[in-house]
């Protein structure tokens, strides 16, 4: 299955896998690069804002709720968490396929990692999409 992945390139990166768009590894190769470019903007903005501008010491539930009242920031976070989790999951898959060699063990490790990562993604997206500030500000 991983035999279709492109060869590692001297100086970083991997060759684009051979084959057309029916080959999952071709999609995977492009996805890593395009989501990576998007994440440079999304993740670095997120890090700079919360760590350098707001300051983690000043963070609390009300600040997050205030931020999430704006649909733009909820959408921003949906994009950030989705790209980041899928980019990370595919990267973890590369490592599993490289280092876990026994077919049974590989399947087991993949099952666990896929479940945890996709589960966390589902929790995050669910929270962002069902967010209701009216209920929350009373409760906090």
């Amino acid at each position: 299955m991983n035999g279709a992945r492109g060869a590692r390139r001297r100086g970083g990166g991997y060759e684009r896998p051979v084959g057309g768009w029916s080959n999952f590894e071709v999609w995977s190769w492009f996805f890593m690069r395009l989501s990576g470019l998007a994440l440079i903007l999304l993740a670095l903005y997120h890090l700079v804002w919360w760590n350098l501008v707001v300051g983690v010491e000043h963070l609390d539930s009300q600040l997050v709720i205030e931020r999430w009242r704006n649909p733009f920031w909820r959408l921003f976070n949906v994009a950030l968490v989705t790209f980041a989790m899928l980019h990370g999951l595919n990267g973890a898959r590369y490592s599993i396929e490289d280092y876990v060699r026994r077919p049974g063990a590989r399947l087991a490790v993949k099952a666990i990692v896929y479940t945890v990562v996709l589960g966390a993604l589902a929790v995050g997206v669910f929270a962002l999409l069902t967010f209701d500030p009216a209920v929350l500000l009373q409760r906090s």
């Binding site: 989790m85 999951l89 973890a92 990562v117 929790v123 995050g124 929270a127 929350l136």
Partner: peptide, 21 residues
């Protein structure tokens, strides 16, 4: 990735239990 899993799950707490967050 390991940090991200933790970070997303604990931040999602905000909408259920802001006090725990």
């Amino acid at each position: 990735l390991a940090f991200l899993i933790l970070h997303v799950v604990d931040t999602a707490l905000v909408i259920y239990r802001p006090d725990l967050y």
